[in-house]
Design a binder for these strands. Structure first.
Length: 804
RNA sequence: GCCGAAGUGGCGGAAUAGGCAGACGCGCGCGACUCAAAAUCGCGUUCCGUUCUCGGAGUGUGGGUUCGACUCCCACCUUCGGCACCA
């Protein structure tokens, strides 16, 4: 064991003995909930990405700690999921066993990082104590109508004879056998995320989240404001409603198009068209969704129903087509075809020789596009026309404004074993019956066999499946599906602060005090998944009376991705993975985490490079030199070196700012500067003052502490301190001491820097500066024979003389 | 196709309420120490020219606004990400 690793172990042991990082609930008023996204214990150990996420968030948390916050930074495991199950099928090792082993290993690795973490709050989603309450939350959502069942297409591998999760489908093929995946309709469980679609969009603006992430969610939810328009089919005494965002193009409608699955299809198809329509619809159903949506703008096909609808305003007869490009799940499943102003309608119209009518265009003298061929609305700009036509429709009761969303409900059932069992019982007499709350948890059985025969292990487990109906006691069967692991992770941050609660998911009063999470750090790949699901669950629980807040994560930051040295994503198959352990064992935790800090912009990430460790190793070496063999001096008086003191205050200011902004690379750069300056001061000898130097060293260690906690403790102890440096307060800078008695100004002539001028800091106001500069010997040569047009003074920075 | 982000030395990356571009490092070069090497320390390091002190160019490309633009505006190119028949 080398020196650095000894230091790691020494201080980790001491922190534990002193219970230094125990979360103190008495100080809850000063709480700061710092949440790095919990880890997924797949067959892998901690990888470099975990270090980047946890190690660097810990820097921020430690700064906040030293600033006096009661930091709550818990760790846990997102332990259910597919990889463990696939591993079991391959090796016969039970997912519980492999997962538990992985967790044990990862916990050791995490502890070796030396994070601020109170391990009493650890949780794991695959433990009964946790999933019991995942099941309870499911039941509460079910009671509230926010969890429901409906038939839905799922991914089906015809070769493996099994349902696949979305993650198991890669480019339309089965991950395991490469067969083309088809769709199969099965009865599935959903969470009604759409019940919160409006709020999920609207509340985004109050969150301190990256704009890109907000944008992705906004787009994912996809709100469109538009108008519903009614078209009548007089012959059949039917009415068809369409949704459009372009009601201004209403006069350009030349046909109606409806989804093949639309319930009115059979009715609209006239007898002589029935057969063809039936064939078309059947064929459309056969097509996988993938085929149907092939390419950017797939082939538009369709078939005429024989029926005509009447244009609400012009009473024109419009043919009604069944088409493959209209989706049943969005809007009304019927579209008004405007080939003049919609690319898809245009493609379709060309193929089926339907008329194309332009209703917006340039109109002679007017520059902007206006309505044409639109009766009394001609000449209006599209924006006005939208309003006028909508009004007209509303007046005649032919339509009205409406809003549609792209968001679909969240399909939460998975036909897999290694997940939270869905607490529902199917009784032949009573139907779907929820498991009574006092019978939770529905325990996931261990004695199942992992034979890849296309059936979920749970289905084959008789002792699990057969049960009596809670209502009528008749023999019944359990739901064999389990919950999507994203359900487990959608509420874990609510469980952390009260992870030992045996009677309820969490104590409401406590959670309302502890949350929302103050700072969440997790990958941007979760933008439209985890971050959205967690928001939905929070809002649902709020409305169920559990919470008094509706947004779980006040601030959010995404760490970047660390790539292999080849610039490619790290993967075992490419052989470009970099193991953190080898560095930690050789150089210690602090050097490794500082290398990660210094080598990348935190939000960007990038390719790993050996050089990062080298530069930090050297830095640490130089730093340690500062503390050795202080030149002897008897003076007990503190003699301040003004220049060095100014640097100290600037570094304090910058390091604080940089850590707060997650710019750890800049924070280290600042410390390097201070380190160099201290080294020079020490080496210079003559004016060396020991008390002053020790004062600076003390500040240096305090500033270093969040970045390199073990090292800082060690250096702190060499300064003869008994207590942990984390009992110290974060240093404050003094704005008055940032400034030197002389300030260097840049002198520009016509905007180009020509000279540097040192001026006494007492020369401050514009007139004085201008006067001194123009009189300066250094400036005179530039002025010869020229006329000064203008002098621009940027305080304490720059003077620009504009000459003619 | 639509939406978004990013383009700065050989490399990682600094600097944006418009004010000295390239901080801090890696690498490289030269020097010191050494029999030698490694390690370490010192100096140099955007490019071109140079008389060694300057001059010119320079933050993807081309324009613009301004005393002054990596930063703001317009157009374009490249890369990456999100959505993708959402009416």
């Amino acid at each position: 064991m080398n020196y650095s690793v000894k230091i790691d172990k020494k201080w980790q042991k001491r922190w534990e003995e002193q219970s230094l990082y125990k979360f103190n609930k008495d100080r809850i008023a000063k709480k700061l909930y710092c949440l790095p996204m919990f880890s997924y214990p797949s067959a892998d150990k901690l990888h470099i990405g975990h270090w980047f996420n946890y190690g660097l968030m810990d820097v921020w948390s430690r700064l906040k700690w030293m600033q006096g916050y009661e930091v709550f930074q818990p760790m846990g495991f997102d332990a259910f999921g597919l990889p463990a199950e696939n591993y079991a099928i391959k090796t016969g090792i039970h997912p519980r066993l492999s997962t538990m082993q992985n967790i044990d290993f990862m916990r050791k690795q995490l502890k070796a990082m030396g994070l601020i973490c109170d391990w009493d709050y650890e949780l794991s989603t695959c433990s009964k104590e946790y999933y019991r309450f995942t099941q309870l939350l499911f039941l509460k959502l079910y009671e509230a109508g926010l969890a429901y069942q409906k038939e839905a297409p799922v991914n089906w591998c015809p070769s493996c004879q099994t349902v696949l999760a979305n993650e198991q489908v890669t480019e339309g093929s089965c991950e395991r056998c490469q067969s083309t995946v088809t769709k199969k309709n099965l009865r599935q469980w959903f969470f009604k995320t759409t019940a919160y679609q409006a709020e999920l969009v609207d509340c985004l603006k109050e969150l301190d989240w990256p704009n890109e992430t907000k944008r992705i969610q906004t787009h994912w939810i996809g709100r469109s404001e538009g108008v519903y328009v009614k078209f009548s089919v007089p012959k059949l005494q039917q009415e068809l409603t369409v949704f459009t965002t372009r009601v201004d193009t209403l006069y350009g409608v030349t046909f109606l198009a409806m989804a093949p699955e639309h319930p009115l299809v059979a009715q609209l198809a006239l007898p002589e068209y029935q057969e063809q329509v039936k064939q078309y619809v059947e064929a459309a159903k056969e097509q996988s969704e993938r085929e149907r949506m092939a390419g950017a703008l797939g082939d538009k096909t369709g078939i005429f129903t024989g029926s005509y609808a009447e244009h609400p305003l012009t009473k024109e007869q419009l043919p009604i087509y069944i088409t493959n490009y209209v989706l049943l799940g969005y809007g009304t499943g019927i579209v008004m075809g405007v080939p003049g102003h919609d690319q898809r309608d245009a493609l379709f119209a060309k193929q089926y020789k339907l008329p194309i009518k332009k209703v917006v265009g340039e109109n002679g003298e007017q520059e902007r596009e206006v309505l044409i061929n639109s009766a009394e609305f001609n000449g209006l700009q599209p924006k006005e026309a939208k309003q006028h036509i909508a009004q007209e429709l509303a007046q005649r009761q032919l339509g009205g404004p409406g809003t549609e969303y792209r968001l679909r409900d969240w399909l939460v059932s998975r036909q897999r074993y290694w997940g939270t069992p869905i607490p529902i019982i199917y009784c032949p007499a009573c139907g779907a019956v929820p498991v009574p709350e006092d019978e939770l948890p529905v325990v996931l059985p261990d004695d199942v066999s992992f034979t890849p025969d296309g059936e979920s292990p749970l289905k084959k487990c008789q002792t699990f499946m057969s049960v009596n109906c809670p209502k009528c006691n008749a023999s019944a069967t359990r739901e064999a599906d389990t919950l999507d692991t994203f359900v487990d992770s959608a509420w874990y941050f609510l469980r952390y602060p009260d992870n030992k609660n045996n009677s309820e998911p969490f104590d409401q009063k406590l959670i309302n005090e502890m949350l929302p999470v103050d700072m969440y750090v997790g990958g941007r790949e979760h933008a439209a998944m985890h971050f959205l699901y967690a928001r939905f669950i929070t809002k649902a629980l709020r409305d169920l009376g559990y919470l008094n807040f509706g947004e779980p994560f006040r601030s959010l930051i995404h760490q970047g991705v660390i790539l292999g040295t080849d610039g490619q994503k790290m993967s075992k198959s490419k052989g470009n993975t970099v193991s953190p352990d080898q560095y930690v064992e050789k150089y210690g935790a602090d050097v490794f985490r500082m290398a990660l800090m210094f080598g990348f912009a935190f939000r960007e990430g990038g390719a790993w490079d050996e050089g990062f460790v080298r530069s930090i190793t050297r830095f640490v070496g130089r730093m340690e030199q500062l503390f050795c063999e202080l030149p002897g001096q008897t003076s007990s008086e503190t003699i301040v070196n003004q220049k060095l003191d100014a640097l100290r205050h600037r570094v304090i200011q910058k390091v604080t700012q940089m850590i707060e902004r997650f710019q750890f690379n800049n924070a280290i750069a600042q410390l390097m500067e201070l380190c160099t300056a201290l080294g020079n001061y020490k080496a210079a000898g003559a004016n060396f003052n020991k008390p002053f130097y020790r004062e600076l060293l003390a500040d240096f260690v305090r500033l270093l502490a969040p970045l390199a906690p073990h090292l800082a403790e060690e250096l702190w102890s060499t300064l003869e301190h008994e207590n942990s440096v984390f009992k110290e307060q974060w240093p404050n800078y003094d704005p008055k001491k940032l400034e030197l008695s002389e300030i260097e100004w840049a002198l520009q002539i016509n905007g180009v820097v020509r000279q540097k001028l040192l001026l006494d800091s007492s020369i401050a106001n514009k007139e004085d500066v201008e006067q001194v500069v123009l009189a300066s010997e250094k400036v005179k040569p530039y002025l010869a024979g020229k006329q000064v047009l203008k002098v621009i003074v940027v305080p304490k920075k720059l003077v620009n003389i504009v000459l003619k």
